[in-house]
Amino acid sequence: MSDELYHRKLVARARGAVGKGKLDAPDGRATIDNPLCGDRVTMEVKLADGRLAAVAHQTRGCLLCEAAAALIGAEAAGERLSDIDAAVAAAKSVVEGAPAPAGCWSALEEFGPVRTAKSRRDCVLLPFRALAEAIAAARGTTG
């Protein structure tokens, strides 16, 4: 992966907007704003048997934010919740320069160039934070 922040794969992923929309009767929902730029992500989730049964997002953000939300839309459904927790942690590590994990979250490598743009790391992490909060809300562990 080059250091090009806006490589074609990332732009295409953002424009693809996989998972954009709403769920009927979600178990949990979370909306997070980025106060620096006004971006906003809402994640809705359904849980079943310790797994994320379904996820949908409404994202108003930059290409990095849109691409991260689309990656979640593409990969998160069907994953064990423990794997989701690991993916959220991996996203934080990748934007700080760590290699992406193997497996279905290997596409996190698309966000590797963000390591050189510290002010943009939150753009990538906003959807992951919203996902974690939506799951926590579904589990009843947050207000």
Binding site: Y6, C37, C62
Partner: peptide
């Protein structure tokens, strides 16, 4: 185009801009 993507792209040309709500929501 999102303002931050514009600003980031222009930064490649050493053009310093500001993107966002400018503390004027």
């Amino acid at each position: 185009l999102h303002p931050h993507d514009v600003c980031q792209w222009l930064d490649r040309r050493n053009v310093a801009l500001r993107g966002g709500h400018h503390c004027a929501q």
